[in-house]
Each structure stands twice: as structure tokens, then as C-alpha cells.
């Protein structure tokens, strides 16, 4: 009757329903993500496949590292390659999988579509950050377990240091991935830009020239790149013979502090 009852009252607890449906969103996004075989292959399988393939194919990777300090002089040569493979897993997800996902959401108008619903588009990005972390755990875990079981790689000397460097590598590289996706208006644009950073990053993290035989100048440049610092820090943590990878940890923290706010600030939602 009156004008007032036709009008919807403002909700009392504003923001309370902000995360309604987040669990459902995460579960659905994960289900849909698993339907893309290419993305799943690169995010989950590619690093372990490379490790096992090279570990079984290259004779030097199977022979013990006789010139390494004990107890590593009995470990197979591929041991020094495993930390690089873990860095590769981080790099692959953050520079190939993630930017393409986010730019495609923008390209298809999914972010804009969500902003007309009570679910903020930020939560879709959040859900995919969670999915990518899960993918990384599976991918890096498979490489570690595969390396240990199939190739006889010994367990890390400082597992907690390895874990710390892995977490910091993830924050630094995911921030870089977010920045790559921040402005790209198409999935293909983000893919191209991601690849442009991905391949040099792989080079400095020892995928093509193993860290152990990398020239000093390359290693010095690598220390200041996020994925290079990641591979070096993981290697130091795995072998435990060079103390704490302080320089690498600081580099990773610095990259995160610079890249994450930049990625968030530049990210376009439409």
C-alpha cells in the first residue's frame, strides 16, 4: 500500500553474506578446471615427467655425485636437478596456467558478470589462487616422491628450509603471474607475455643448464630473479651444506612485496 513497503530495507549486517557460496564456487571451479587436459597436464604432470624422463635417460643423472661432500657423494646426479624441477613446477603454474585463466575470465566477461551478483569477482581470483596452490602441492609433491622412489634421490637435508623457500617462491611467482594477467584483455595476450618471462626464468633456474655447472655470472643474475632465487634457495635447503639461503629468501620476499601490490593495483575487472 504505502511506498515504504515496496522498498527493500538495506541489509543490517552488511558484508555478512560476502562469502556466501564461496565453497560451492571453489568446488565448481576445481571441477571445471580439471576438465581442461592441457592445463592439467602442464600444471600437474609436466614437472615430474621431465624429472623422471631426464633422470632415466641421462646416464650422468644416475651415477653418484662423487665430488660432492658426504653424504651426497653417494646420491645420484639427478638429486641436484630436483630443486630446479620444484622451481619449474612453481614457474609453470604461475606463468602459464594462472595468467591465461585470469585473462580468459576477463575476456569472456566472467569477472564483469560476477560483479552483478552478490559474489565479488575477487573471490573467483581467490578461488583460483587456492586451486593453483593445490595444483602446486600435487605437482611438486609428485616430483619429490617420484624422484625419491624411482630415482633414489635422498630426502632434503633441511625440509623446513625447502618448505619456507617453496612458500616464498609461490608468493613471489604468483604475484608475478597476477601482474602478467592484470591488464591482458585476452587469454592469448597473457599467454604470450607469460611465455616471454617463463623461458628466460627456466634458463636462470637451471632447467637447461643445471645450477651445478652454470657459469658464475649466470648464477649471479639468477639470484636476483624470482625463479632463479627460488631454484637456488631450494637447492641450498635440499643439500644443507651451504647454511641458510638468506640472500635468496630476501630476494623472494622483496619480489613479493613489489609485485603483489602492483598486480592488485593494476588488475582490471572488466
Amino acid at each position: 500500500m504505502s511506498a515504504v513497503e515496496r522498498v527493500v530495507p538495506a541489509p543490517a549486517g552488511r558484508g555478512r553474506g560476502r562469502t556466501r557460496g564461496f565453497g560451492k564456487l571453489l568446488a565448481t571451479e576445481l571441477k571445471v578446471w580439471l576438465r581442461d587436459p592441457t592445463a592439467v597436464f602442464f600444471a600437474l604432470v609436466f614437472p615430474s615427467m621431465l624429472l623422471l624422463g631426464l633422470g632415466l635417460a641421462i646416464p650422468a643423472f644416475q651415477e653418484p655425485m662423487t665430488d660432492a661432500p658426504p653424504p651426497w657423494n653417494e646420491a645420484p646426479g639427478v638429486t641436484s636437478y630436483l630443486p630446479t624441477i620444484i622451481a619449474l613446477a612453481v614457474g609453470t603454474i604461475s606463468l602459464t596456467t594462472m595468467p591465461v585463466q585470469f585473462a580468459t575470465f576477463r575476456e569472456k566477461g566472467i569477472l564483469k558478470r560476477l560483479s552483478t551478483t552478490p559474489m565479488p569477482p575477487q573471490n573467483l581470483i581467490g578461488a583460483h589462487m587456492v586451486i593453483n596452490v593445490l595444483a602446486l602441492i600435487v605437482s611438486a609433491g609428485a616430483a619429490v616422491v617420484g624422484g625419491m622412489v624411482v630415482l633414489g634421490v635422498p630426502l632434503a637435508a633441511d625440509p623446513l628450509v625447502v618448505l619456507l623457500v617453496l612458500v616464498l617462491s609461490t608468493t613471489a611467482m604468483f604475484s608475478l603471474g597476477l601482474l602478467v594477467a592484470a591488464r591482458a584483455d585476452k587469454g592469448t595476450t597473457a599467454s604470450g607475455l607469460g611465455m616471454l618471462i617463463y623461458f628466460p626464468s627456466l634458463m636462470f633456474s637451471g632447467v637447461w643448464v643445471p645450477l651445478s655447472i652454470m657459469p658464475d655470472w649466470m648464477r649471479e643474475i639468477g639470484l636476483f630473479l624470482p625463479l632463479g632465487a627460488a631454484a637456488q634457495g631450494l637447492t641450498i635447503g635440499w643439500f644443507g651444506t651451504d647454511g641458510f639461503p638468506l640472500a635468496q629468501v630476501l630476494v623472494l620476499v622483496a619480489w613479493t612485496l613489489v609485485l603483489f601490490p602492483l598486480g592488485v593495483r593494476l588488475f582490471r575487472w572488466t
Binding site: 527493500v8 541489509p11 556466501r20 560451492k24 565448481t28 581442461d36 569472456k108 566477461g109 564483469k112 552478490p118
Partner: peptide, 30 residues
């Protein structure tokens, strides 16, 4: 956002989401 439903001109969904899943997930927001 709670009370106005919007169908945008060019908006799409994930290629691989099914009709039922899309309705289910969008419904869970309200």
C-alpha cells in the same frame, strides 16, 4: 546485487561448465 538480476550483452561462462553446474553455483551466491 541481491535483488537485481542482470543478463549482460556479451557475458559468457567457462566453456566447460554445464548448465546445471552454472545454475547451482550462481544460485549459491543468493
Amino acid at each position: 546485487r541481491e535483488h537485481v538480476g542482470v543478463q549482460l550483452q556479451e557475458a559468457a561462462l567457462h566453456d566447460k561448465i554445464t548448465v546445471g553446474e552454472a545454475l547451482d553455483v550462481f544460485g549459491s551466491f543468493y
